[in-house]
Every structure is written in structure tokens, then in C-alpha cells.
Amino acid sequence: MSGDLERRYRRVLRLLPGWYREQWEQDMVAAYMDSWLTGDAYTDACVLEYCKPGGAEVASVAGLAVRLHLAGPGTPRRYAWGQALRRAVLAVLLVHAVLAVDVLVFLVQSRRLVGWLPASSVSLLTAASGGAWARVYCLVCVAWMVIFVMQALGRYRAALVLAVLAIVPGLVALLQAQRTGVMPAPFGPWVFWVLIDLAPVLVMTTFGRDARPAAPRPWLLALPAGYLLVYAPLLALQATGNIAWLPDFSGLCCLLVSLACLMHAPRVWSRRVTGTGSWSLTLVVLAAAAGAYRIFSLTDYLNDPHLIAVSLAEVLILLAAVALVAIDAARAQAATPYPHALTG
């Protein structure tokens, strides 16, 4: 017995990836129809003709579809993308954590909270000057460090809840600036919020509790290392009076991803090292995000041909660097080992 209800449910199941439907669709439809049919011919005829999948049922299929599309096992391609996205999210959270350390160090120095530290300092970001917003800003900074550590340790659910809370003040500040007309640039801050705040949180919603965590130790060590990597050159530029050479934040992202690609490339091209593809795919994902950030924030410099030229040079450097690992990333999608799904 079949009817409109089955047709409507199969339409919902089209949200799922093809390889998954091939394996599970018939069984899902059978179970779904079992949940409706009563055995009474008249009632069942009415059910089949007039009932349709409810919101909760559609939501459960949509949730499964998002997880399978972004982070699910089942095919080498999906598995490789899942791994790459988990690492890319960790990398973006690392950026947040490094910026948070920067803001906190800057606040400590500028307010002379620790006597032996020098008063003046350089910072990538401008800390809020005072009042309630400054306190919220500090709380958000601390939150990003905690989120990064939790994500590195595989505490996905707690990290997600905190991350959702952490991106809200940024959105409120942007809306307020937009409303009062004090937005420093038309698109840059929005692009930052969408790509660096919102996008990782959306990807984090797809991580299952049992998703394979990254090795936490190297990631945790990357926080102090990342801070030194960014701020040692920054201090050197300041000391030598060349601070004007410092690229803006989106440019810095492009250069850091390019540097990571250059450091990874020798492993890719070495015949002795295997299993590099997953990291190559991670770098391609990060390069796409950094490139998009750079290109969209170009609109802030439309009246400055010099900065436009510098920005385009940053994009070209990024493209050249990512080209070194792109072929390896493409190969990874067919070669990454993955857990076997149900057969039979």
C-alpha cells in the first residue's frame, strides 16, 4: 500500500546525499509508513491521502542531511571533507583565540594592570574603550579561548553552545553601528562576522558527539606559538618604525594561509611522506575563506588604488601558494580511509 504520504516523505528524503539514500531510503520509508498505518483500511486510506510529514520529522531528516553532507562518513570524499572542515574550524578558532590573547595582553599593558610590563603596545584590534561594552568584549575574548580549548579536546557540544553565545555581541555591535551610521567600513566588519564568526559555528553544528577529535596537544601548543608568530614580527615592525608595512587583518589571514601552504608543500611533494592529503584539503578550505574575506573587504578601499593593488597582490600570493597543495587535496578525496558503512 502506498500513496501521497509515501511520495511526500520520499520528497523530504531527497535532502539526503544520493549514496546514503541508495543504502537506507527503502528501509526509512518502510519504517516511516509503519509509524502511520493502523491496519484499518478506511483510516489508512485517509492517512495515505491527506497526511504529510510533520515539522519534527522533516527537521530530523534535515539534521541528518546536514551532518552527512558536511561531516558524515560513508564515502572517502565525505570523510575527507569532514576531517578538513573539523581542522579548518579549529584553525579559525585558533585565530579567534590568538586575537583574544592579543586583546587581553593589550588591555593589561595599556591599563598598567601588571606593573613590570611596558605601558605601550601594539594590537591588531582596537579594544573597546570602557563601560559595559568593554566588559562584554573581554568576556567574549575569554570565551573564544575556552571555545578553542574545548573544541581541541573534543567537547563539541559545550564548545558549540559557548560559540553561539560568543558571536551574538559582535552581531549586536554591528547592527548598532549600522543603525547609528558609525560603521568604520561598509562591508569588512560584516564579512569578518559572517566568515570568521558565523561560518565556523554553522559548521560546528554538524559535528556529532562521536566525531573523531583532532590530536589536542599540537593544537593547544599552537596557541602560544601562533601568538608569537604574529606578534613578534608586529613588535619588530613597531620597533623599526615600519608599522605601515603591517597588512590589514584580511591581508594577514591571506599571508598566514600562504605561509602554511609553503610549509606544507615540501611534505606534499616528498615521496617519503604519505597521508598529507587531508591537511592539503584543510589548507584549501582555509585559503578559500581567506581569499573570500580579502576580496569582499576590498570594497572598503575603493578610493585607494594603492591598497587595492596591495590587496590583489595578497590574493595572487595566496593563489600561488594554494596551487602547490591543490592537487594533493583533490587526490585526498578519493584516497582517505573511512569507516565502512552498512553493507548487505
Partner: peptide, 20 residues
């Protein structure tokens, strides 16, 4: 819900804890 059930079944099958 059926979507949730088959998400769980797929994971358990992938981990080798259930089979057809």
C-alpha cells in the same frame, strides 16, 4: 523520529556494533 533513528543506526553500523 525516523531521521534521528537512521542517523543512529548508520553510526552504529559504521562502528560495527549492529548489522543487518
Amino acid at each position: 523520529k525516523i531521521g534521528s533513528l537512521y542517523g543512529v543506526l548508520e553510526r552504529l553500523a559504521a562502528e560495527g556494533l549492529i548489522e543487518p
